[in-house]
């Protein structure tokens, strides 16, 4: 087990290096003179000549853009590996400090989201696989495809109008994750307050994910149901419920678990727009605001860190795969 994880960690190195190279290339896209910078960000009118000039100067200094290329690259590698991304241009606080504030919020949001998606989609997928092409299967598949096709930002602003603006219903908060002054409340009130704030954003983040995962579960389950060992289980006299739940699901879950790793980056990217709409101070909003104000150190840090996080979650789901599938052994046991 340990040696397997070690081997996988070593295999991650070239990928990690690739991530660093790509982010390094992105830094080089940064405009070298204030005029270009200003013309490019015509939309974000926040940019004036003074700030444009200082951004270009700071960028040159931070990444040593006046030094020869190999030196620049080595410096960037060093920064990426030690997670030292410098200070934000906007408030001159260390980038990592800002990220440590934002990351828990996004992780909380995404973990709840993934959890809900799995809780709903996997049973749906199993259910539709048991009676494929039936009425329920078709209805579920069309409804979920509708959900999948509804743009989350559109749904978000409509839900805000309906449930939170006070024009129709005034049930749910629509900005932030904590009411003003709520941090002085006892802890359970704070938990309640946060849950209250998270309802709408989580609805917007989850509904689109049902289609893919339930479809995936369905396909995986259909594949399993065709297998001979399902017939064996039936021949044993097991009830259909047990055949599906014990012999079917466990096998079908194997590929589904590995998907978890690939869901994370999608949700991290998806939350840019939802966090922005609901003013949630997570990674997505931090990233977007940094992009608007050309806060390069923060942008680079987020890109690098989220790529690394994804890499780690891929590793985790690989390890999980081995844990749930006894066919794959960590060390050679058989002759």
């Amino acid at each position: 087990m340990a040696s397997y994880v070690l081997k996988r960690l070593l295999l991650m190195i070239p990928t990690l290096l690739g991530i660093i190279v790509i982010t390094f290339a992105v830094v080089h896209l940064a405009p070298g003179d204030p005029a270009t910078l200003m013309s490019q960000s015509a939309e974000s009118s926040s940019m004036n000549e003074g700030s444009a000039k200082s951004i270009v100067e700071e960028t040159k200094k931070l990444y040593g853009l006046d030094k020869p290329l190999p030196v620049q690259f080595l410096r960037w590698v060093q920064r990426a590996v030690t997670l030292d991304f410098g200070n934000s241009y906007r408030d001159h606080r260390p980038v990592m400090e800002k990220i440590w504030e934002a990351l828990p919020i996004t992780l909380l949001l995404n973990i709840i989201t993934i959890f809900i998606i799995y809780i709903i989609s996997v049973p749906l997928g199993i259910y539709t696989a048991v009676k494929p092409r039936g009425v329920a299967d078709r209805v579920v598949s069309v409804v979920l495809l509708v959900f999948y096709s509804l743009p989350s930002f559109w749904v978000a602003i409509m839900l805000m109008v309906i449930f939170g603006s006070g024009d129709y219903l005034n049930w749910l908060p629509i900005t932030g994750i904590l009411s003003h002054g709520a941090d002085k409340l006892p802890w359970y009130e704070i938990v309640m307050n946060i849950s209250w704030h998270l309802i709408l954003p989580i609805v917007c983040l989850t509904y689109g994910g049902f289609a893919f995962l339930s479809r995936f579960t369905r396909a995986s389950m259909l594949e399993v149901i065709r297998q001979d060992y399902i017939r064996t289980a039936r021949a044993k006299g097991l009830s259909e419920w047990r055949v599906i739940m014990k012999h079917g699901v466990r096998n079908a879950l194997i590929p589904i678990l590995t998907l978890m790793g690939t869901l994370l980056p999608a949700l991290l990217g998806g939350s840019v727009i939802i966090e922005q709409i609901f003013s949630i101070p997570g990674m997505g909003r931090l990233g977007f605001e940094s992009i608007l104000s050309r806060d390069y150190p923060v942008i680079m840090a987020i890109a690098t860190i989220s790529a690394m996080l994804t890499l780690v979650s891929i590793l985790l789901s690989d390890v999980m795969y081995k844990v749930v599938d006894p066919r794959i052994t960590f060390d050679k046991r058989e002759g």
Binding site: P14, G18, V26, S41, P265
Partner: peptide, 24 residues
Amino acid sequence: RLIEIMTCFPTFFLILTVLAFVGP
């Protein structure tokens, strides 16, 4: 490897970042 590297980046954020640099 390249595919693996690409899938590590959150796509939408990557698009935003690149657009921020090259201009929309």
